[in-house]
Design a protein around this nucleic acid. Structure first.
Length: 395
DNA sequence: AGTGGTCAAAAGAGAACCTA
DNA sequence: TAGGTTCTCTTTTGACCACT
């Protein structure tokens, strides 16, 4: 059985801007996540008249929909599910959809609307002007058809999707915990990279590794296919040391010339964007050939006989995470210069201790690999279930 | 000619009312 | 109350200059 969205929700409640103040919580699109849950880490407080608060206060089980926002790559119409205690309203860029609980299970409706956004249905209801994108909410509510099985079935479907979400979140959580574990092992074994509490030898990075950048490749030398050519942004995204889908390429001949002249990044070398206050350092783990833009990507040719590349990755990550702005310089923005990188005082513990650390990290990396696999599987499962629920097949 | 450093334009992202 | 714009801050990157 199908029904129109308008028949199973109350009249949408529009948001309120309010005035400067600190009386009630106001949820904005910043508080939306792409996974359909609210992010309450940055909720603003505003003043709103008492009668408005009474009329528009969010209730548990409400669905908040984004009316204005999105981007060229992301359609407008995201939804989040509200199940908080306390007084919350939402702002003008959003509206509240309140399910009629005798007809529809709120969680079920939420998942369906989430799928609508995910699978591009909201795109048919958006009004694109020059700037931001607006959702034609009235049309959406009046025209949108919803598969509506009996309440009991809806509840079961919502439960299945909840379980799939929980599984996915648990795996995600596991991945962050592995990262934290790796970080805490580093700090426990070596201490703060600036303080050097264990008084190990310090050497200039330049004395133990090759430090520099790539040879310049000019825009007109880039081609449509060939060897991947990465810019700083992409290097920063290559967090697991494996290639992402490239946009730019150089010819194989060009690559061979560069290989001859400067060498090319090898397994165990480190790359980092020069603008990198959060310590995104890439340890290369692929043999697939690629090259990268000079100047914005710094290249550390690790000499493993002097220093272990896993150890150095974590040393620099910790150092930059806490001290980037002391080391980087620049007028418009802080940027790590090659000279500054060369001069970094690198703590060099005995190599066997570094290797012990690397062994532990490799184990963690293996576990992470497994967790990543699981995450992919649980995401596929969730998507598959969502797809089915959306088509009314999950009955 | 090859590198490194700097500058600032361009692009992107996010937040905030106002008006018809 | 629906629906459109602009500002500002951040990030990315091309261009250029200076030095070797």
């Amino acid at each position: 059985m199908k029904t129109f969205l308008k028949d199973i929700i109350a009249k949408p409640i529009t948001g309120e801007w309010g005035t400067d103040g600190d009386e009630v919580n106001v949820l904005r699109t910043t508080n939306f996540t792409n996974s359909g849950v609210l992010d309450l880490s940055n909720v603003v407080k505003r003043n709103i008249a008492e009668n408005k608060v009474k009329q528009k206060q969010l209730l548990r089980g409400d669905i908040i929909i984004e009316k204005s926002g999105g981007s060229p790559t992301q359609p407008v119409g995201r939804v989040v599910f509200f199940e908080e205690e306390g007084v919350y309203l939402c702002n003008n860029f959003t509206s509240v959809l309140r399910p009629k609980k005798d007809r529809v299970e709120p969680k079920y409706l939420h998942y369906l609307l989430y799928a609508n956004h995910r699978f591009g249905v909201t795109e048919m209801f958006q009004n694109k002007t020059t700037g931001i994108i607006n959702l034609q909410l009235t049309r959406y509510v009046n025209k949108l058809e919803i598969p509506l099985p009996p309440l009991k079935t809806q509840q079961r479907i919502a439960q299945i999707l909840d379980d799939a979400t929980a599984l996915r979140d648990k795996t995600k959580q596991l991945l962050t915990e592995y990262d934290l574990l790796a970080q805490s092992i580093f700090l426990e074994m070596f201490g703060d990279p600036v303080i050097n509490p264990k008084q190990w030898e310090k050497r200039l990075l330049n004395d133990i590794c090759g430090v520099g950048s790539s040879r310049r490749v000019f825009v007109n030398e880039l081609v449509d296919e060939g060897i991947p050519f990465y810019r700083g942004k992409e290097i920063g995204e290559l967090s697991v040391g494996k290639p992402i889908n490239p946009d730019l390429f150089i010819t194989e001949d060009h690559y061979n010339v560069l290989k001859e002249a400067t060498g090319v990044p090898k397994i165990g070398h480190l790359l980092m964007p020069s603008i990198c206050p959060d310590g995104r350092i890439l340890r290369i783990e692929t043999e697939d050939p690629f090259y990268f833009k000079d100047g914005r990507v710094l290249w550390i040719k690790v000499n493993e006989s002097n220093i272990n590349s896993y150890y150095l990755t974590f040393f620099l990550r910790e150092l930059f995470r806490t001290n980037y702005y002391n080391i980087a310089s620049g007028t418009t923005f802080a940027e790590l210069k090659i000279v500054a990188l060369k001069k970094i005082k690198t703590i060099v513990p005995p190599i066997d201790i570094q290797n012990q650390f690397a062994d532990k990290i490799t184990l963690i990396e293996q576990q992470k690999e497994l967790a990543q696999q699981e995450l992919k599987e649980s995401e596929d499962l969730f998507n598959c279930l969502l797809q089915k629920a959306f088509k009314g097949e999950l009955v």
